[in-house]
Amino acid sequence: MAEFSMGQALNRALRDALAADPSVVVYGEDVGPLGGVFRVTDGLTAEFGEDRVFDSPLAESGIVGTAVGMAMYGRRPVVEMQFDAFGYPAFEQVVSHVAKMRNRTRGRVGLPLVIRIPYGGGIGAVEHHGDSSEMYYAHTPGLHVVTPATPADAYSLLREAIEDPDPVVFLEPKRRYWTKAEVDLPVRTEPMDRAVVRRTGTDVTLIAYGPMVDTVLEAAEAAREEGCAAEVVDLRSLSPFDDQTVTASVRRTGRAVVVHEAATFGGYGAEVAARVTEQCFHYLEAPVLRVGGFDIPYPPPELEEYHLPSVDRILGAIDRLQWESEWTAESPAVPGRRSEVGV
């Protein structure tokens, strides 16, 4: 076992994919000799040469459009959008071509390509560097959308994404690039389309993905100190959505809170809440709650802490879940909780 940060695990995944499959190419803005602004492609040009890992002109639509052509002709391109909001110029390519090529050609032309996008806030960056753009992609049929929360998953999901016959939007939670864990690389974790239970509990299911998984785990720990056993589900895949794992958990706990950084209105949490309600209605003790970013443009760095879901805000949501079960009634650790019901 060695310690890897998420960024290092991603780097290793790219290196191993390049070594395993000569059709893999990696390109984008500054991914060559610099190694990417987050150093995720560090050392790859030196190891695999300019033919395999290279800097392209600074034009996201062109980057994704050329990747479409390469994938049509037997390459497996892995391209990088430098930051979430810099991926928007490529949006038309993603929606009209990447997502639809297999469908448009009646299954004849698939596009095995990966679009890596560092996303989310929490690193004190200025505007256009903190967006959570996942819902734009998750709402688009034809794409897989995945996002790791741990170094092991970062490695495994990226390898699987590169091997997948369909296009994958690979969202990297940039605030977790430096999060380290003991992991044996190479590693293969659960399949790409599965959610996993990161922490078991009986009282409430906390559902999160990418950058919010660690925050939710922290909240679960804090809740435990207050006597509430929270289960934590890490979605990993936003499209497809793993109904089975999520509903099984919520049916056990009867309560659910879904947490993400993105604006709450029309966000991924709305889809999760709707699906959980449809499939678990008779098991639910309380409405499914969402803890998301405010419905505002991403704030300037000095104000982002007020915007991003925090442990306290998640605990507050847990408090609002109409507690009637024995642990709230009997637990001295949560005085007054029952009195808040209905407030």
Partner: peptide, 22 residues
């Protein structure tokens, strides 16, 4: 495939011929 969103298939041709040259 015939392309309706104007000019969006032009970069596909660039990528495809790049791959062919490789």
């Amino acid at each position: 495939p015939q392309c309706t969103p104007l000019a969006t298939n032009a970069s596909h041709a660039v990528g495809l011929t790049y791959a062919a040259r490789r």
